[in-house]
């Protein structure tokens, strides 16, 4: 069973618009933008990984905090998609993250992310109890996404340590300090989220050399693999055995929806690792899942056939031993 932790779940709302007037030419009037299409689904990085895996037939349990009417919508969506839900209910309302996609500029969406509800201490204690219980039945645990108000940024570090003690492989897919604190515990796999800031820990990851240097640091901490985005269509994998470069064959102009592609990538990697693939080959499949997701309007491509087809476009190159 694959356990995923999403401390700050979201209802992802997508709006497709013909034109997005971002400059106020007529200041006296309000701006009305009509969406010609809209769509919503349960979201948050861990939840997305669970949805991907459940659609691939993998048993997965999603954990985190749910609140209010939005929480009910998130739960319902997860249950309908075959994800087992084991959440702690809190007061308030889960966040809604909005993505506006303008026709012809799909590679450049506008996003508004809410902060999410504050998580009370007693709910955190309850979560930890449930988490420890579920770890006993898990093979991998995915710690992913934003940390909500009320929870310290060291949370993933604590959860990764718990996983290590329970003999469960941790995959950390987050950004900023939350990620780096967890990296120091030597989790199995690290996928830094560098969307907001091109840094991993306090190291910049703008150039290939900087990425490799950050990846090496993660390996020094005991990680088995660190996968960092080089640019929008390429990633670099650093493992104790060596360094691999990957490139997808999809040009940014062919992108239809960027949201969720990274999570499909992580889901794809775990899916292949479960089938016994080695890390570099599993990453190649993950890259294909991510690339296929970029090419569909839905948040993630959940068609095994389309992902297999995409495998042909993934360039994988062994760069050098570590």
């Amino acid at each position: 069973m694959i356990l995923t932790v999403t401390l700050n779940p979201t209802l992802d709302k997508f709006y497709w618009v013909e034109k997005l007037p971002l400059s106020l030419e007529r200041v006296e009037e309000e701006i009305l933008i009509r969406a010609y299409k809209s769509w919503g689904s349960a979201g948050g990085k861990g939840i997305n990984v669970s949805v991907f895996l459940a659609c691939m037939g993998v048993e997965t349990v999603a954990m985190g905090f749910l609140a209010g009417h939005t929480g009910q919508i998130i739960l319902r969506d997860l249950l309908e998609k075959g994800v087992t839900a084991n959440f702690v209910w809190i007061e308030g309302e889960n966040r809604t993250n909005v993505t506006i996609i303008e026709k012809g500029k799909e590679y450049h969406p506008v996003k508004i992310h809410e902060e999410g509800p504050r998580i009370p201490t007693h709910a955190q204690e309850l979560f930890l109890k449930k988490y420890r219980r579920m770890l006993k039945r898990a093979e991998y645990v995915v710690l992913a996404g934003a940390i909500p108000p009320g929870i310290p940024e060291t949370a993933y570090r604590e959860l990764a340590l718990e996983a290590k003690e329970a003999g469960v492989k941790a995959v950390v897919h987050a950004g900023r300090r939350a990620l780096w604190e967890a990296v120091k515990t030597g989790p199995f796999f690290v996928k830094p989220d560098v969307r907001e800031e091109l840094v991993v820990g306090d190291m910049p990851v703008r150039t290939e050399e900087e990425i490799i240097s950050a990846g090496k640091k993660a390996i020094e901490y005991g990680c088995s693999a660190c996968l960092i985005s080089h640019h929008v269509t390429g990633d670099i994998l650093i493992t104790p055995e060596g360094i691999w470069e990957y490139e997808i064959g999809v040009p940014p102009t062919a992108f239809k929806n960027l949201v969720g592609a990274d999570d499909a990538l992580v889901g794809g990697i775990i899916y292949k690792l479960l089938q016994g693939e080695e890390i570099p080959e599993a990453v190649r499949y993950g890259m294909a899942a991510g690339a296929a997701s970029l090419e569909v309007e839905a948040k993630m491509c959940l068609s095994p056939a389309a992902i297999e087809q995409e495998m042909k476009s993934i360039k994988m190159e062994f760069k050098e031993p570590l």
């Binding site: 249950l79 075959g82 087992t84 839900a85 209910w89 007693h122 109890k129």
Partner: peptide, 20 residues
């Protein structure tokens, strides 16, 4: 089945169960 594992433990207090 609904794959919803919302549950309590034997030592959960009644007011906590009512809250859930």
């Amino acid at each position: 089945m609904r794959r919803d594992l919302t549950s309590v433990e034997p030592d959960t207090l009644v007011h906590e169960a009512v809250y859930i």
